[in-house]
Write a protein that binds this DNA or RNA. Sequence first.
DNA 1: TCGTACACTGTACGTCGTACGCTGTACGAT
DNA 2: ATCGTACAGCGTACGACGTACAGTGTACGA
Lengths: 224, 224
Amino acid sequence: MSAKEQGQVASEAGLSKQRVVVEAVRLADREGVDGLSMRRLAGALGAGAMSLYHYVANKDELLDAMIDVVFAEIELPPEEADWQSAMRWEAASTRQALARHPWAIGLMESRTSPGPANLRHREAVTACLRRAGFSVVMATHANWLINSYVYGYALQAATLPFDTADELADMTEDVYLPQLPPDEFPYLNESAAALIAAGYDPAEEFIFGLDLVLAALEPLRASA
Amino acid sequence: MSAKEQGQVASEAGLSKQRVVVEAVRLADREGVDGLSMRRLAGALGAGAMSLYHYVANKDELLDAMIDVVFAEIELPPEEADWQSAMRWEAASTRQALARHPWAIGLMESRTSPGPANLRHREAVTACLRRAGFSVVMATHANWLINSYVYGYALQAATLPFDTADELADMTEDVYLPQLPPDEFPYLNESAAALIAAGYDPAEEFIFGLDLVLAALEPLRASA
DNA sequence: TCGTACACTGTACGTCGTACGCTGTACGAT
DNA sequence: ATCGTACAGCGTACGACGTACAGTGTACGA
């Protein structure tokens, strides 16, 4: 078992856990998690359904592995940058990964044990915060706050069908405003109308909140 | 159709959309969303599986209705309190509801249109912020930030198997630390050990981050 | 007394995850 | 050259799923 580690080598044509999981991620991106079945996945790999069970114990383990693929896509905070820039970079990368794979958000609830990429990621973030002068307890607070913001933002963004100011304006006129009669929802109605009038751009919302969060964390730091 | 509105009256023994959805929530709380099937739900209601389709178009609509039941459990921000207290109250109530029904978090991604309770809730929060002196745009920022934090916190909390300092200490000793060798995960290892040594209480984490968020929002307010 | 409406259900179809047992091939030992 | 073993891959089958469809029964106005 020289070159044949836990992770397998997948040489050439044959299957491998890698290939199975990566194709599962592709399928979920294209069709959603509900469209991901062992048979369809096997079909996409040109294999029989039961062949997959040589690389994955069951579907639950496959889903766990898929989540870890998503975490592996997230870039680690760069070590040379100051802590705010590093965390901003990392948070933006996380948000992008979760936007590419929105099903991952829904999957995270229900699976409890973090995969290796997830752990590597947490280690790097904790390292960044500790080196920046946060105590263990304060680094924990910062971790919770930043992760909560990023995951929660991704969750909300996943439920919204627009990404740009134009798409928002179209949706607001066509579907939101008609559902928000001013007598029942005066404030929401006002907001919807005022936001598109002001040219509100949802693409900038993430960084706005993130900067507030990072600035709020700065005082918790015992600067070396 | 005098007393027979959209919502039905459910008098006495018969079924009703109310009864179906509420029992579905109970079942999901007890067995998880994956354990919720139309047949099992019907069984719990003492009915045949197909009877449910008189009150719910399909399972997707049932899931939408279940989410709205969760939103209906969230208390609205009290009008008489100052905005920070009001939002703190509302956020705490949201977190509790999502802790009672963790499956709701996973369901939110994938369902795009908010139910009536969700809308009522957003209206009340927006009203609270606007009355406190936030402009439309700033109230939108505040809404995104607070919701992101609360949903993200609930999502993370749902994946963790402990709620108290004692449970955390047990888990850390028995399963976390053994999985965090100090040469591979020096910072996580240090943190895990230091947190239990310091008697870190996860139950206080939520309010800590929330207060930081609320304080960070205060300057965005044009105080009347 | 009848007709109609409607709450309710049984059966059946296609799909799902996966247990089980069968193939074939690759390869070290003889 | 022959065999044994190991293992990648697959076909079939089972129970559970969502739900289309075609019924039932009962309540009630005419």
